[in-house]
């Protein structure tokens, strides 16, 4: 099934996950695996670029919930960027903006990590 894809890259020592397509109960395990791999290799500064994410259900939101605690314990963070209004509405409905840093673009999200490191 090609309804959800993740591209991973590094930018200024920050790990960027680019999500594309539909994130639901069927595709959420893919994102879970991507986070597991990052944590296993001790990479805790993570930006999730949602520019091409067309859809998210609670199964996808649950993945962010599952990893944020571990990531922050290791002095990292999961920051989200480039959300379409439709996807942002779902995050907002559940109060996620209280807990996650959601910024306009990837550049800003990456910069926040380097500011913190100074």
């Amino acid at each position: 099934m090609s309804d959800f894809k993740i591209a991973q890259r590094e930018r200024d020592s920050v790990n960027v996950l680019e999500l594309k397509g539909y994130l639901d109960a069927h595709t959420a395990p893919k994102l879970e695996e991507a986070f597991q791999n990052l944590l296993k290799s001790q990479r805790f500064n993570i930006v999730v670029n949602c520019r091409e994410l067309s859809y998210i259900s609670s199964a996808g939101l649950g993945v962010f919930m599952a990893f944020i605690e571990d990531v922050r314990k290791n002095r990292g963070d999961i920051k989200l960027s480039n959300m379409t209004p439709k996807v942002f509405n779902v995050f907002d409905l559940l109060g996620f903006p209280l807990l996650y840093e959601i910024v306009k673009d990837e550049h800003e999200a990456v910069r926040k990590f380097s500011e913190k490191a100074k």
Partner: peptide, 22 residues
């Protein structure tokens, strides 16, 4: 209570909350 809920990083039950909100 979503504030309380998120503070404890719980999963599950989010779907029912969404259904009721939407």
């Amino acid at each position: 209570d979503m504030k309380e809920y998120l503070a404890h990083f719980r999963r599950g039950g989010l779907g029912v909350f969404l259904m009721r909100s939407l």
